[in-house]
């Protein structure tokens, strides 16, 4: 799909937790070919302190209604500004950017998300469901406040929850969830979230010889491969997260796991 700079209209802005909100966006461009794992680069208007665009994973696409969802966590000035967007306001996006999760030969997958890193996993779960690929979805957070849209995930796979304080689901870290006590026959692990979490997920995958793809974040200026500010170290040297990622097979990364 050709990349474009497009004005979207905010159809709704829904608060999901003390820090997370969901933007529903529409425009004239057809979103049929947007892939799970891809991201958008958002211009934050009327915010003198934010200069660059802000990259956000595509949370989901409703192809029938041609709308796009972004799940955003308030972290800094840019995201806080976006949290105040009203229905009907304008939002300028560059999209679609980056590569996508692969699901060529996958038969049974587990999707593991932590914190706001779960954002791209809903879209992925939806696509896997469309392709009749069975998936387990494991959502983790610090507390119940971090876990949002559980019913949405349940539509597409068996959903499990863990929180560090035990306020929802099992207590503890995602990688200690009881789902890992027995072999569920997964042939693919997808993960997105804080790097330490993805690293322990990657370690599990490696030990159990399961393919594993993770979605990385990095500081970005352009999002289109022109500034080389967003590189990560791989077996092929420094490469751009914005064009060759954000999704990487862990075999390509130089993680010490």
């Amino acid at each position: 799909m050709k990349k474009s700079i497009t004005d979207f209209t905010v159809l709704s802005n829904t608060r999901l937790s003390s820090t997370q909100f969901l933007l529903e966006l529409s425009s004239d461009i057809l979103l049929n070919d947007v892939l799970p794992g891809q991201f958008v680069n958002v211009k934050v208007e009327d915010s003198p302190q934010t200069f660059l665009r802000r990259p956000f994973s595509i949370h989901s696409v409703d192809a029938k209604r041609n709308v796009l969802f972004l799940l955003i966590k308030e972290m800094g000035i840019g995201s806080t500004k976006l949290a105040s967007l009203q229905k009907g306001s304008n939002l300028n996006l560059i999209l679609p950017l980056g590569n996508s999760f692969s699901f060529g030969n996958v038969k049974k997958a587990i999707l593991i998300g932590g914190g706001c890193g779960v954002a791209p996993l809903l879209f992925l779960a939806k696509k896997l469901h469309e392709k009749d690929i069975h998936c387990d979805i494991l959502l983790g957070g610090r507390s119940s406040d971090d876990i949002v849209e559980v019913e949405e995930y349940q539509k597409y796979g068996t959903t499990h929850i863990t929180t560090e304080d035990g306020s929802l689901g099992e207590k503890g870290l995602v990688t200690k969830h009881s789902i890992f006590n027995s072999n569920k026959g997964w042939d693919m692990v997808y993960s997105c979230g804080p790097e330490p979490m993805m690293k322990s997920v990657a370690m599990y995958a490696k030990q159990n010889e399961i393919e594993c793809e993770v979605s990385l974040e990095n500081t970005m200026a352009c999002g289109i491969g022109s500034c080389l500010c967003c590189v990560t170290d791989t077996i092929d040297g420094n490469i751009c997260v914005c064009t060759e990622g954000p999704v990487f097979n862990i075999k390509r990364l130089k993680w010490q796991i």
Binding site: F51, L52, A221, C229, C230
Partner: peptide, 20 residues
């Protein structure tokens, strides 16, 4: 050249710093 290691970019008021 592999360039410098990460992080290579920081946003600043009305600008950015790079260390590509």
């Amino acid at each position: 050249r592999q360039g410098n290691s990460y992080p290579r970019m920081a946003e600043t008021p009305a600008g950015m710093l790079n260390a590509v």
